[in-house]
Design a protein around this nucleic acid. Structure first.
Length: 223
DNA sequence: GGCCAGGACACCA
DNA sequence: TGGTGTCATGGC
């Protein structure tokens, strides 16, 4: 891999030790709310740059309108879909993204999410990334939480926690941070799942844009 | 009333 | 490839 000039120095970190601290604090998270793989995948798209509470409203609307199925998502006019998911914000864009996701499933997997998840992880990730509106975080969330694939998810909180502790450079790239985790911890879906959930738990409480480090279980590890 | 949230993409230099 | 603008609701 090509070496890049770094903006700051990086401290070594034992990411498994970090997980154990979080796990000790928050307990097992058993994460990603959702009753089905489709609901989780839809949630992954709707939560882009949006608080989860708003996503919950949008998903509740989808359920109330019996629109949380591949068929319904396929058949609904895009403006109608946008109306239903309005509380999640960016509703026009996200309606198009949901449409693109279903079109992808129809085209490559005969409209079957189950069939998609039977595919090889790397191959499916590549295909998901080619869908308009699905970037790396969304693809990995769908793979891991909806499909049970071994693909570590990097999100805003993960980035903040690692860069603020000096464990990763400020300009770290997504795939680079993903590899940091995948190289450092045992390759287990359940661990990938719970670790990211732990990072979101600590991020939600302590690592917002304006951090409140008081009481954070990772505070003793700050430089 | 401003800030921010479990991103992604188009466009430009 | 790097920087910037755009998309938008709702909680605090």
């Amino acid at each position: 891999m090509k070496q890049r000039k770094r903006k700051n120095t990086v401290k070594p970190v034992d990411l498994m030790a970090v997980y154990l601290v979080l796990r000790e604090t928050f307990g097992h998270r058993g994460w990603w709310p959702g009753d089905s793989p489709l609901e989780i995948a839809v949630g992954a798209i709707l939560t882009q740059n949006t608080s989860w509470k708003n996503v919950e409203k949008a998903i509740a609307n989808l359920k109330a309108e019996r629109a949380l199925s591949i068929r319904a998502l396929r058949d609904l006019p895009v403006d109608e879909l946008a109306r239903i998911i309005r509380p999640s914000g960016y509703f026009n864009q996200k309606a198009l993204k949901l449409k693109a996701f279903v079109e992808f499933l129809d085209r490559d997997y005969k409209g079957s999410l189950t069939a998609a998840f039977r595919d090889d992880t790397a191959a499916l990730r590549e295909k998901l990334l080619a869908v308009k509106g699905i970037g790396k975080e969304t693809a990995d969330s769908i793979l891991l939480y909806a499909g049970g694939h071994r693909s570590f998810v990097i999100d805003l909180y993960t980035r903040r926690i690692l860069t603020r502790h000096g464990w990763a450079p400020e300009d770290v790239e997504y795939d680079e941070m993903k590899a940091m985790f995948e190289d450092a911890i045992p390759p287990e879906v359940e661990l990938y799942n719970d670790y990211h959930a732990q990072l979101v738990a600590v991020g939600n409480r302590f690592c917002r844009k304006t951090p409140s480090c008081e009481g954070c279980p990772l505070q003793p590890m700050l430089p």
